[in-house]
Design a protein around this nucleic acid. Structure first.
Length: 533
RNA sequence: GCAGGAUUCGUCUAACGGUUAGGACAGAAGAUUCUCAAUCUUCAAAUAGGAGUUCGAUUCUCCUAUCCUGUACCA
């Protein structure tokens, strides 16, 4: 079995930050290529000079890098991402603006062979036509009927056409759709699709104004030249698939026409419609892989900055619109490469669920070693003004081992364990009311004396488990001896140590903050609360 | 409007035409420890509607509804 080497491409346009839906498209392309031991190409479709956004290309490259998606070929934006220098590669360059000289001859070839024509209508004229049609509740289409009444090389005298081509540049080359023909197409995800060409309009392929092709021409020509075998792209392209088929036919490239797979859209978590930047702002989750600041200084959060592991992000995205057919949900990139298949990609739109995204990250967090987590914790502590020099790596490892069970993100570590590092500044009102009865306060004084006399091993101690359980036994033993209620004593202590009735076990807390600090916190709390009364 | 596409628990999804329609997230209840979380157990929750084909439709066909995409000299 000798199959051609698979070549796929991800071809975003640099009009802004890469949306997570785009990352998913890139990921599926990447997985497909890796599995087939083919090539994954990154091409930049910047044929719209109007909408070009500075920095967007760099953003795309950095995002893919963060996700661990490395192209085999593609734009090299100064990074080490692409091994082969772009200039030397036979398929280079990979930025369509740099391929500008290539396209015109292809557009003209189509005109010469009768598959396209020159059109001289101005945007204003066409807009007027569209408005007119709209008022009649119809849609204006530039097709085999209307083109007879418009200004183009099919209707104008030859000399006039030549004069306009030579003297002006406000003309375009349009595709000449065949009349009443059924185009038969196949999609790897959606199956067989048929459409009548009479419903199509004569799309602009090339614009004289800027000498650039539109998406349709550039895309087909580049995919052909770059020997792309499979086009895996978003569903928004499905309606233009017939045009692309017709273009391959007109060029005589049907033999090497790639196979197509159209991915469904990512939908917003609530309501209707596709996932947009606004939804993230509104519902409080990122829609972009990385943080992005636009020209107006507006900030959009990113998965990276929100503390997601790239593997978790990728894993979540992979399962949004695809599943392996088994009950496995956690996949490494390599496992995804092995398991992925286009025929298990879902046809319908997938609603994004931020809660599930958090769950994925939690799963990955738990897979990290305590040492890795401790290393991640250090900068977070510093941000919160903690002198991390005071804590050994062993100390932090022991703490992380305990708190990782309660977190979705390493960013949560501070919220969960701040009281280990700083004494509470205030105490929750309702917890004071609940636990600080005169009787309880009296008992706590006795507990304090007891702790003072007790030998306590502090963090980091080699036999941590043992140290904590010994302390716990002594403490609970003492409380039981006196016939006090376990809950009230423990929770009062917790209130004094933490500031509220939350957090780790009392023995754990004392182990981590140490005997002196524990005693200090009890004294401070007793003083403060008796003053307030 | 027209053209395409889509439609299984709230959400992501599984089910060669024959299953008590399965799993996960979220939710609820219980167990558990000194609290909170975590954990464990249990519960609740779906084939858009209508015709047809068939011994039998989530699955095939048609119609309706709803949603999405496209309808640019944007991608």
């Amino acid at each position: 079995m000798s199959q051609k080497k698979r070549r796929v491409r991800f071809a975003p346009s640099p009009t802004g930050p890469l949306h997570m839906g785009g990352v998913r498209t890139a990921l599926y392309n990447y997985l497909y290529a890796r599995q087939a031991e083919g090539d994954f190409i990154l091409r930049i479709e910047d044929t719209d000079s109007q909408r070009f956004v500075p920095g967007a290309e760099e953003y795309i490259i950095e995002s893919l890098k963060w996700c661990g998606i490395y192209p085999d070929e593609g734009v090299d934006a100064g990074g080490k991402m692409v091994e082969t220098p772009s200039e030397r590669h036979p398929h280079a360059p990979y930025r369509q603006s740099q391929r500008k000289p290539i396209y015109r001859k292809y557009a003209e070839e189509l005109v010469n062979n009768g598959f396209a024509y020159y059109a001289f209508d101005t945007s204003e004229e066409l807009d007027a036509k569209r408005k007119e049609a709209e008022s009649l509740k119809k849609t204006f289409t530039y097709n085999h009927i209307t083109r007879k009444g418009l200004k183009n090389s099919l209707t104008l005298p030859k000399e006039e056409v030549e004069r306009r081509l030579a003297e002006t540049n406000n003309w375009t080359i349009r595709f000449k759709n065949p009349e009443n023909r059924v185009v038969k197409m196949d999609d790897q995800i959606r199956g067989h699709i048929e459409i009548n060409t009479d419903t199509l309009d004569d799309k602009v392929l090339w614009k004289a104004a800027d000498g650039l092709p539109t998406y349709h021409l550039a895309n087909v020509v580049d995919d052909h030249l770059m020997e792309i075998t499979d086009v895996i792209r978003g569903e928004e392209w499905l309606p233009s698939l017939p045009l692309h088929y017709l273009l391959y036919e007109a060029f005589g490239w049907e033999e090497s026409r790639p196979s197509f797979a159209h991915l469904s859209l990512l939908l917003k978590p609530d309501g209707k419609g596709k996932l947009s930047k606004r939804d993230g702002d509104r519902l409080g989750f990122p829609v972009f892989p990385l943080k992005w600041v636009n020209a107006e200084g507006e900030v959009s959060r990113g998965y990276r900055e929100d503390g997601y592991y790239p593997q978790a992000f990728i894993n979540m995205l992979a399962l949004l619109g695809w599943n392996p057919g088994t009950e496995q949900e956690i996949f490494s990139l390599d496992e995804l490469v092995k398991a992925f298949s286009l025929d298990r990609v879902i046809k319908s739109g997938a609603r994004f669920n931020p809660e599930k995204a958090k769950w994925f990250n939690q799963e990955y967090l738990r897979m990290q070693s305590d040492e890795e987590l401790a290393k991640e914790f250090v900068p977070i502590l510093k941000e919160n003004g903690i002198d991390t020099g005071k804590y050994s790596m062993e100390y932090l490892k022991q703490l992380c081992a305990l708190i990782k069970e309660r977190a979705h993100f390493t960013n949560d570590f501070w919220t969960i364990s701040h009281y280990i590092f700083t004494a509470p500044q205030s105490y929750a009102e309702n917890d004071i009311r609940k636990f600080c009865t005169p009787e309880n306060l009296e008992n706590i004084r006795k507990v304090k004396d007891f702790l003072e006399k007790t030998e306590i091993k502090e963090a980091p101690y080699a036999k941590k488990e043992e140290a904590v359980s010994v302390l716990e036994e002594r403490l609970t033993g003492y409380i039981k001896e006196n016939g006090w209620k376990m809950g009230s004593i423990m929770n009062t202590l917790r209130l004094f140590f933490v500031g509220e009735a939350k957090g780790l076990g009392i023995a754990d807390i004392i182990y981590f903050i140490g005997k002196d600090e524990a005693l200090n916190r009890i004294s401070a709390a007793l003083e403060k609360i008796s003053i307030e009364r």
